[in-house]
């Protein structure tokens, strides 16, 4: 009787372990659906509580900062209107088409602290708000990350610190181009970025700014990525790599803007090439 009970116990253990191994090897779309199902059921109250706390904290402590930022935007906005008018007239004289204007939507960033998912965030906007997979997520300081999965009323993305994150970047004067990716610090205490593949002869100095170049079509051009910290490595005569201080520190972000049309989607549908201008709503 006892031996039979032990056999049954071993069978349950074996089934649980094999089922878990099967889950690991499921197709990505099925895994995504399963994750969505669990988030919408077991995790829903906890994710909503996280979003509520983040919003409340932002409202409680962010009013003075928001007022300061709003004030600082008034003069540039007045100058911008005049520039837009001049640009429109000049494009009209040159018979150029209107620039493609991207739109972005404000979202609460729900940060997850679990070990192994520190680089993942949730946004409280999804398909219903027009967010698409691979859309860039930005703050007023620069690039925060990228949306990966989009569902009805929320989306999931990763910060620049995720190992899969890549973005084409350049100096604002287009002197040097390269691919920026995350460089993990020992024990995660010093996560930063690294730009690889810049031309060997176009040397960069500490403090030089980097912005998205728009190459590849996923990220709009002109978003601040960070600034050069120092050289990382060089392959003699071919290319250089530099460490980059990120423009945005994910731990401090509670609110961000998500583009509602990803560049990848625009390229795929043959829409006009983005010019980097944006419009938040």
């Amino acid at each position: 009787m006892r031996r039979q009970g032990r056999k049954r116990e071993l069978l349950v253990v074996a089934v649980a372990c094999l089922a878990a191994l099967a889950v690991v090897n499921l197709p990505p779309q099925v895994q995504s659906d399963a994750r969505h199902l669990i988030r919408e059921t077991a995790l829903r109250p906890f994710l909503e509580l996280n979003g509520t706390i983040a919003t409340a904290r932002d409202r409680a402590f962010g009013f003075d900062v928001a007022r300061e930022r709003l004030d600082s935007l008034i003069l540039p906005a007045i100058a911008h209107r005049r520039l837009v008018q001049e640009n429109r007239e000049l494009r009209g004289l040159l018979a150029l088409a209107h620039r493609h204007r991207r739109r972005a939507i404000g979202a609460t960033v729900i940060r997850l602290g679990r070990r192994g998912s520190e680089s993942v965030f949730h946004l409280d906007v999804g398909l219903a708000s027009g967010v698409t997979p691979f859309a860039a997520v930005i703050t007023e300081d620069g690039l925060l990350g990228q949306v990966q999965e989009v569902f009805g009323d929320y989306s999931v993305g990763y910060y620049w610190s995720h190992p899969d994150f890549r973005v084409a970047a350049m100096t604002p004067d287009a002197r040097a181009h390269g691919i920026v990716e995350a460089a993990r610090g020992t024990l995660r205490e010093q996560d930063r970025l690294v730009i690889r593949g810049t031309a060997f002869l176009s040397e960069l100095d500490p403090g030089d700014e980097l912005v998205t170049s728009g190459r590849g079509g996923t990220f709009p051009a002109g978003i601040r990525v960070g600034s050069i910290d120092g050289p990382a490595e060089a392959s003699a005569g071919w290319s250089r790599s530099y460490y980059v201080v990120p423009a945005v520190h994910p731990g401090l972000v509670a609110h961000a803007l998500a583009y509602t049309e990803s560049g990848a989607a625009a390229v795929a549908t043959g829409s006009p090439r983005p010019g980097g201008e944006g419009e938040a709503r």
């Binding site: 089922a19 878990a20 191994l21 099967a22 889950v23 690991v24 090897n25 499921l26 895994q31 399963a34 994750r35 669990i38 988030r39 077991a42 995790l43 997850l112 679990r114 192994g116 998912s117 993942v120 990966q148 999965e149 999931v156 990763y158 995720h162 899969d164």
Partner: peptide
């Protein structure tokens, strides 16, 4: 379910 990669590893 809260991460984007390696679904099933913790299970």
């Amino acid at each position: 379910s809260v991460s984007l990669t390696s679904f099933g590893a913790s299970a």
